[in-house]
């Protein structure tokens, strides 16, 4: 058996040389989307005005409400540049999309079934737009098995929901696009400020399906 283990180790090392060393560079942007979503038909979106700290409050994440607002503004700027219109929670008509921002306080699986009510239940738009959603519903990432990974402390997750896109599982709210900005909220605040705009922009640039031909 030791021989077999050695062979496995050698084969793995040969297939992915450098894997053991790994890459720990900052500024990694991951985007994933659901190809069945009709991105070309979306015009309006809503975005709660808070970056939610997910998991138990940690010590590694900067408590930076001012920075949170800048990040929210950066995301809104990108959507505006694409021609999307942001609606407020008071709007009577439901938006086409909901965009949620969260930051990890501790390490967790990248695509966890986030409890929608516990994290976002305070957002007043939900109750008027989507009354059918119960408190025990969860956000579900359809690509979770295809693209596993880890959400490190300080990772910003931008999540897009199409409320009309029915989930394949009961009591699930399917996510149609998500972007993870690895470790954005770690380091000094100055470091975050110097990086977040280009990283948010990169998330949109590498998602060309969000750029339908808009007037």
């Amino acid at each position: 058996m030791p021989g077999a283990a050695l062979v496995c180790l050698l084969v793995t090392a040969a297939c992915y040389p450098g894997q053991i060393e790994g890459v720990d560079e900052p500024d990694v942007v991951l985007t994933v989307f659901d190809p069945s979503a009709a991105f070309g038909s979306f015009v309006t979106y809503a975005m709660p005005d808070t970056v939610i700290e997910v998991d138990a409050p940690g010590t590694d994440v900067l408590p930076t409400p001012e920075l949170d607002q800048q990040v929210l503004d950066a995301v809104a700027t990108e959507f505006a540049a694409l021609g999307y219109t942001r609606v407020t929670p008071e709007a009577t008509t439901a938006p086409d999309l909901i965009v949620l921002l969260s930051v990890s306080a501790s390490e967790a699986p990248l695509w966890t079934d986030d409890p929608w009510w516990a994290l976002w239940g305070w957002f007043s738009g939900w109750s008027s737009w989507y009354p059918a959603w119960g408190a025990d519903w969860v956000l579900r990432y359809p690509w979770a098995e295809s693209y596993p990974g880890v959400r490190r402390p300080g990772t910003l997750l931008i999540t897009m929901i199409d409320p009309d896109h029915s989930g394949s599982e009961p009591q699930s709210i399917p996510v149609i696009w998500a972007s993870a900005l690895d470790g954005l909220y770690t380091g000094s605040e100055a470091s975050v400020v110097s990086r977040f705009q280009s990283l948010v922009r990169q998330a949109f640039e590498q998602s060309p399906y969000l750029h339908p031909d808009r007037p």
Binding site: Y16, P17, Q19, E25, V28, V29, T31, V32, D34, P35
Partner: peptide
């Protein structure tokens, strides 16, 4: 440091690519 493009995903930044 480039961008890896898959049919339904993309990853940019410094990475090991095989």
């Amino acid at each position: 440091a480039t961008t890896s493009l898959l049919p339904d995903a993309a990853l940019s930044g410094t990475a090991l690519r095989h």
